[in-house]
Design a binder for these strands. Sequence first.
DNA 1: CCGCAGTATACCTTATAGGTATACTTTTAC
DNA 2: GTAAAAGTATACCTATAAGGTATACTGCGG
Lengths: 296, 296
Amino acid sequence: MDLRQLRYFLAVAEEGQVTGAAKRLNMEQPPLSRQMKLLEEELGVTLFDRSGKRLALTNAGMLLQRRAEQLLRQFQETIEEVHGLDEGILGALSIGCVVSCFSLLPQRIERFHEQYPDITFKIHEGDHFLLGEQLEKRNLELVVARLPFEAAADPERYSILRLPSDPFVALLPDSWSQAADSRKLGMAELAQYPLLSLKSNLTTGMHNRMMEAFREAGQEPHVLCECSSITVILSLVAAGIGATILPKSVIASLPLPGIAMRELALTPFYSEVGLIWIKDRYLSKIARNFIEMFGE
Amino acid sequence: MDLRQLRYFLAVAEEGQVTGAAKRLNMEQPPLSRQMKLLEEELGVTLFDRSGKRLALTNAGMLLQRRAEQLLRQFQETIEEVHGLDEGILGALSIGCVVSCFSLLPQRIERFHEQYPDITFKIHEGDHFLLGEQLEKRNLELVVARLPFEAAADPERYSILRLPSDPFVALLPDSWSQAADSRKLGMAELAQYPLLSLKSNLTTGMHNRMMEAFREAGQEPHVLCECSSITVILSLVAAGIGATILPKSVIASLPLPGIAMRELALTPFYSEVGLIWIKDRYLSKIARNFIEMFGE
DNA sequence: CCGCAGTATACCTTATAGGTATACTTTTAC
DNA sequence: GTAAAAGTATACCTATAAGGTATACTGCGG
């Protein structure tokens, strides 16, 4: 049994005759008669009562009529739904994000949601390597992370949309600095404080950039603690344990009390953020739309 | 898009590769690859992400997978349901019945219901001509009526299952006869009473049979009232207006108080009942099953 | 870098849907 | 009652598209 046959059957059932149905279907009567016979044979069921030139539906025929209408409607809906999904009207977008970039998402998600209200988001947090792995497994389509993307063994494999860069700032406990103190902080001064750095077995980018900045200023800082997570660092700063250097946007998403921000004297010292996906792999229309909007 | 293509798609989606799916489908790999490509083209959608030799489903693919499973399941259910209906496991049976035969139905319906619990009945009451008309219009599949079936202009058009015959009896008001009086009633005695007969413009069979019985006994009865309906006759008997002759089974279904029954001296005087349907026309399996059981 | 496993392309074969001609059946009109 | 009309069924042909075979192409693992 075939969808075509169901469509034919419905036409015949509605017209009450083969000839009229054939006209409606833009075909001749004999093939349609044959299809009806084949359908009956395949189902092993008598669908029409052929007494005289008119065809009346049997019980089985009436049931099939109802069911066929239902099936064809659902079929049509499926096509439209699948189509809509590919066009990026429906569906879900899975995005991975590094904690330090969270602040970039909310307003963009809101804007996207206004334009595509039926899209839902799935947001995963993790470090570069975790996110890279999920990207490979197709659990994520896009990743927002600091550049360079450390999971990128082969940079050619990824496409990256670079975002406006973000200055590094110093973060230190409130108690160490007057709130009114708006002077830029020199690296020498900062090097006097115990420092906290973002570093784990795998993710060393931020740590390296910080150390580099100190080295350029001729300073040898004292790293009190290497932390694997930004939230840990910020808690420690708020608790008065140490100071650190982080991209300015970080504190927008995690505004803990007890932390003072000071601009750095060192210029230019910027962090770059990128929207990352795997090149030459299928990207949903949703994701493509999101990328387009993300850059604006 | 075609159901075959959906089945193919599901196999490929589950296997995660075309070659394996082709094996499962007992076909070769190239045609299957082509079908998948055609499906994608027809839907205007990318279903698979072909990076490397493995095929991964896109969002649209995953949606189609869910929908396709659903559709195919419903499709299968439809086939089974239609099949079941034709086999007389499900559905409804429309029966027409003359009032005088009602008493034959209850026990038979009960027995049928035990064997086919999902079958429902639609029972219509009427005279021979009304029932004949409904039979022609296919609103009824079967009719239970006294024989001969008066609507049968062409007796060849109908199939009839004859049932064990039913003796005529006299019905008269209680007050006219002692309840203990179990003697057979002679036609001569009955002819003294005012009589009620079942007769309308169209249905004259019962009236004719009654008159014939009197004529054979050499009597000329006085018919006080010709009634078109059995219920009217019985009410009139109960009210002491007159006496009548009816098949014995009639009073089983309409046991009005105030009516006495007396067997007739005249033998053999029987009424025949039949289950009637239109020959050479589609009969549902339910109806065929019912006919089979009806005769037992 | 080569062999392996899988996919895609090209071309052929075959099955089946649809068309044409026509016979058969029933309804309707004279 | 018969003939015309309208509809269905049968027979046979054509064309389309599905499936098969051979083979080229492409990542992946040793």
